[in-house]
Design a protein around this nucleic acid. Structure first.
Lengths: 201, 201
DNA sequence: GCCGGCCCATGACGCACGTCATGGTCGCGA
DNA sequence: TCGCGACCATGACGTGCGTCATGGGCCGGC
């Protein structure tokens, strides 16, 4: 019997997935969580074999949660499910030690199959997403550029970004300009959109 | 027995919801669709009593689909489910004749209850969303301002927006400036974010 | 008929921003 | 050790953008 932890902020989806997994007689949903912190507490209490995590939780990124969860519960493998998967997310997820990564567009039978696969030590990534990730390649942005671009995402003026990053406004402009050039964007706002599209921020 | 049509582009979610609804013995999922066109064809073929539609389908808006579906299959009531519901969406949905509107964060038991309610001629909207919609009120933007703001969403420069809207750059700036002022935003990018947050674009 | 709101346009002003050149400090690999 | 690239900063230049004033054409309500 494989013991599964489910984490998704959308109650409807979470319990629907639980119902789906419960149909399989070798799977057992031992815990459900609606947030990352809740998921961590649940995992410590129930020590599940496999954790099925949504990419976007209300309080934290599903990927960083997976990393922390692996440290907290060593025997537990993580699978990420996501609505619209970006290549960059897949890359970051694999670096964080995630064993399975699949979009919600996949067939229902795939999920339980993936849970079994990762429990046996295997890995699974959606083939289409993998192809995209390989063709898309790495982020051309330096870490700092990605940081600044992240701060610029809300449409904040340079002055505010500089304050929040403890930088001079001129430096912020330089980073932004460099990032926009690398992404072939006309301005930083288009650069933000482009970086998001690839999952680089 | 209430006959239900399910439309959601995410296979995993759709079949999980189907499994959930199948647990109720007075509900029967007679058709599933992954796109709006597919949903229309399915509805014509199976004449369901209730249609459960995702807000965002790949080929069309779930709301406009509901409107067309009501015309094509008169006896069919529509329920919209959505990940993150914005007040504006709710308003537009009700105007389109949608009978139920709920976010995916609701409890699982609610969905089947809502299906029964709308089948009996009742209505249901998520209380929290309704409260937001009432407090948020109507969009302060004129139709043209909303158009221009929509075009500005990608971070395009004013020149390009003007070309795409067949306007002079100055007029575009005026519209954007007015929109930003109405939304209490510092610039048009923040205005876009704000308008999106309310579902006004 | 007149007033008011929306739509479109023009022009001017000033600030924010994008771009470039330059220079300094680190850390890393050849 | 030297070279290279990331990171931070400063300053200057030109332009894109936000803002305001102004005015004309169009419709709908008082």
């Amino acid at each position: 019997m494989i013991r599964v932890l489910l984490a998704d902020d959308e109650n409807l989806i979470r319990s629907a997935l639980a119902a789906l997994l419960a149909l399989e007689d070798d799977l057992e949903v031992v815990a459900e969580a609606a947030s990352a912190t809740e998921a961590l507490a649940m995992a410590r209490a129930h020590t599940p074999d496999v954790a099925v995590l949504d990419l976007q939780l209300p309080d934290r990124d599903g990927i960083s949660l997976a990393a922390e969860l692996a440290a907290a519960v060593p025997g537990c493998s993580s699978v990420i499910v996501t609505g619209h998967g970006r290549p960059g997310h897949l890359k970051r997820a694999l670096e964080a030690g995630v064993r399975g990564f699949l979009p919600k567009t996949v067939n229902a039978a795939v999920l339980s199959a993936v849970v079994r696969t990762v429990h046996q030590g295997g890995r699974y990534v959606d083939p289409e997403l993998a192809a995209e990730a390989i063709s898309a390649g790495d982020s051309p942005l330096t870490p700092r550029e990605a940081d600044i671009l992240e701060l610029a995402a809300g449409g904040a003026p340079v002055e505010e970004i500089a304050a929040r990053a403890h930088l001079s406004p001129g430096t912020v402009r330089n980073h932004l300009s460099a990032a926009a050039a690398k992404l072939h964007a006309a301005n930083r706002h288009a650069a933000v959109a482009e970086a998001r599209r690839h999952g680089w921020i």
